[in-house]
Nucleic acid binder design. Sequence first.
DNA 1: GTTCCGCATGAATCGATAG
DNA 2: ACTATCGATTCATGCGGAA
Lengths: 293, 293
Amino acid sequence: MNSPEVRLLLGDCREELKKLADHSVDLIFTSPPYADSRTHTYGGVSPDGYVAWFLPISAELLRVLKPDGTFVLNIKEKVVDGERHTYVIELILEMRKQGWLWTEEFIWHKKNSYPGKWPNRFRDSWERLLQFNKSRKFNMYQEEVMVPMGDWAERRLKNLSETDKVRDPSKVGSGFGKRIANWIGREKAYPSNVLHMATETRNKSHSAVFPEDLPEWFIKLFTKPGDWVLDPFMGSGTTVRVAQKMARSAIGIEILAEYFQVAHDSLPAKISLPVQQLALLEKKEPYDAAKPE
Amino acid sequence: MNSPEVRLLLGDCREELKKLADHSVDLIFTSPPYADSRTHTYGGVSPDGYVAWFLPISAELLRVLKPDGTFVLNIKEKVVDGERHTYVIELILEMRKQGWLWTEEFIWHKKNSYPGKWPNRFRDSWERLLQFNKSRKFNMYQEEVMVPMGDWAERRLKNLSETDKVRDPSKVGSGFGKRIANWIGREKAYPSNVLHMATETRNKSHSAVFPEDLPEWFIKLFTKPGDWVLDPFMGSGTTVRVAQKMARSAIGIEILAEYFQVAHDSLPAKISLPVQQLALLEKKEPYDAAKPE
DNA sequence: GTTCCGCATGAATCGATAG
DNA sequence: ACTATCGATTCATGCGGAA
């Protein structure tokens, strides 16, 4: 494999994505601006217009993703007029019409949001991580994200009963049997589709939408070293930064010069930008640490 | 308030619901048969036909619910041909057309989910708890579900002082620190929209689909003693049993005589059934403890 | 009494094989 | 080709009996 590289593109992803080749990316991990946030960019997408705004982008993502690649979309609907808005679930339906397969929905449980409440609801402590694929056969490296087994295992496996050594069919006909003996020597178990991760609190010079653990988990699960990771809404660059640390190649696209600059500056291994982009950066306002929300 | 009572109805909820008066119920909590499960009843609803099957029922539920009442629907889509099926999210969209407001989506994190390993997915360890309302003003007794605070705030503030204060003094004055400080010294905190509960695996003469903690939490949150709770898919009666324990009145509807009998027999405070229903029970096979799956 | 340990159980899903 | 059946895989929990 070639030495991993990072490419940062300053601009609107609706344009920048067109520069990427077909079937060139192994994993897309992104957290797009939610409806009504970052209204200063992307024309202030309204909840009602969200699906129409996103579909051209997801069409490009479908094009650049390799056939055995994966698209993970971190998103959560906001509350509008007392209701959860339906733009996310409508988006799922429309993306399927585009050709995406809705393989799975992971839950990110945000462990440490501060307590608080509204008259009609509690604090929102979870977000969706929608997994989309182009085909039913996609790359997944499950062993990379295994977790330590519970301490029950040690006790359990010390003494095996006779029924443990053979497949013991369930009494109630659930069709499920077990062979406890298979677990001997194992120290790790597979995770589930619920991820417990704290939100980023140690805020550095940039504020991140999600903690580094989140892209790291999916990069481990869906790519191997040298593979290409894409984040079309790079923001302050969490995804590309993690990808670089993990020896994956990465492409990050960001429309806002301030965020772009933060992402560039925070890469552990520095990269140089094309002259063209440096000129673009010059024209924008200088990055102000207090500005990004 | 009148003394709480429990009414059990043996029959198809599509018929039985018609017997209930308009605006008579404070909380509907139910877990309908998921697509393709419980195929021996309800004609084995297929994923593709699920929405059409459910809509007439949700229309009746809309009629019987009080204007300030709440409907909590426990459901999860199954995997069909490698994808999460879309019947649940389609149902949300269709129910809104009926007049329901989709107020919130709680997550039930099942700590001990069904085991299994597949090449393309992990264990499914969460289910949806969809909250629907008829109006934006509904009864919610948030204090009833507050949880012990523990040392949450202390840890949080310690974190704040050590890290955030140093790196970004603006955070402390900006309200973040103040909000945290507001919680110091309080004994209880409001919960979030993620519920961590184990499934009921122990088989005590009947197997419950969900643990008693689950309906208990929503009954506390959305009703007060004496209010009416309805479960149109009663099953083995977890919801009505909990409601009775909590001094709420309850109505349970179940189509299958075996489950109906279990629900009736497991009520802590015994109730007598109308002669008509006893006759119906007679005609069915007698309940056999080994039989319910 | 308290702690430790054995054990059955569960809204599942995939791939291969058979009709 | 398309559908139905079958075997394989897997982990946290709470009860009950033992130490």
